[in-house]
Computed example of a mutant assay.
Amino acid sequence: MSDVSSARSVNTAAEGAEDPDLALARGGDGGAFTRLVEPLRRELHAHCYRMLGSAHDADDALQDALLRAWRGLARFEGRGSLRSWLYTVATRTCLDSVEARGRRALPVDLGPSSDRAVVGDAPLVDVAWLGPYADAGLGDGPLAPDARYEQREAVELAFVAALHHLPGNQRAALLLFEVLGFSAAEIATMMDTSTTSVNSALARARRIVAEKVPSRTQQRTLREVGDTRVREIVAGFSTALERGDADAMVALLTEDVTWSMPPLASWYHGLEAVADFAMRVPLTGCGSWRHLPTSANGQPAVSCYLWNDDAGAYLAWSINVLTLRGERIAEITSFLGPDHFTPFGLPASLP
């Protein structure tokens, strides 16, 4: 059963007071509560990621939200669906986190690009960086009939990055309406505000997102390019890195390509700058690489492992998310750090 159909079956069951698991959960049965929420866990986690821009923060927020829901289950009277009530709890939990932590950023948000390779760039530890999202459990279609975005479109890097230019209330309203298909009146109840305020927040949010998100989504591009060709592009990128082949790398890129590497502040725009960085740093300056293909944010991605003499192995280094325009790579976002690998189910090292 798909996530969507599972969620709908849960909603239908939860609307009636006779639902046995709901009655048991209200009576303190933790197993019954787990059975109620498990079909919705993946989509709730994706919602928390969109709100917070970090898979680790989404883990914490979802755990907190489900704990709040468990403790407050007696307040759920069954007038609406269990799904909408859980989204209310999750959204309010995320809004508390947004208020405490602020928004997340990518290097392109912080300053101009560099014309030449910056060697020895130090990570910025005082910036809350946007992180990648392991999307293996997401479906392909919308979560609700009225939703504008597909599930995978709604975790694409450009969309999530654009969301983090919005205040928390606008971010929540846009996600609840456009991605999850709730009505403005339902959202007003969920966010404890008026329908007028929700509509105003939606109008402002749509303007900002429209300015920052390409009209052609990655999902549309990937469908047009086709799975076989996408795999070839990913393999070509990986092989160019492993062989230190600058010409092969450049042949894969658009003229206006960008390459960024959070948590490093420096980023590169245009074929000349990106080629200079690639040649001086990953292709010749880092050492020996190995790679595994993966998928992140609904996009093709490559997990990079760098040889470490002390460990005698290739250690997890970065998740490289590729944004395609046609059959070329228009953006490379390299999320540095082994902590990103665990949510993807990737090994910490390779022999």
Rank of each mutant, 00 (worst) to 15 (best):
F182Y: 14
C286S: 09
L306H: 11
G120T: 04
E77W: 05
L36S: 00
N297R: 02
A173N: 09
D309F: 11
L283D: 08
V125N: 10
H164R: 00
G16F: 13
I187S: 06
V250R: 15
A144L: 05
P142V: 13
A17V: 13
E18D: 15
P145N: 08
A161C: 04
E255S: 09
T254N: 02
G312N: 05
A203S: 13
C304Y: 04
S5K: 11
V321Q: 07
V89D: 05
R50P: 01
H340R: 02
Y133M: 00
A55L: 12
Q170N: 12
A65I: 09
E153G: 10
P300V: 06
D29V: 10
V209I: 06
A248V: 04
D21G: 03
P145R: 05
G28F: 09
V4F: 13
E211I: 03
S318C: 14
E224N: 10
A210D: 10
D135T: 04
F341L: 07
H340Y: 11
M261A: 14
S194Y: 02
A13Y: 04
G16L: 14
F335S: 01
S238H: 01
A210N: 08
G53F: 05
A58V: 02
F159K: 07
L143M: 10
R223L: 14
V98W: 09
G80F: 12
L350K: 00
R42I: 15
S54Q: 00
Y305D: 06
L106K: 08
S183V: 03
G312Q: 03
V198T: 12
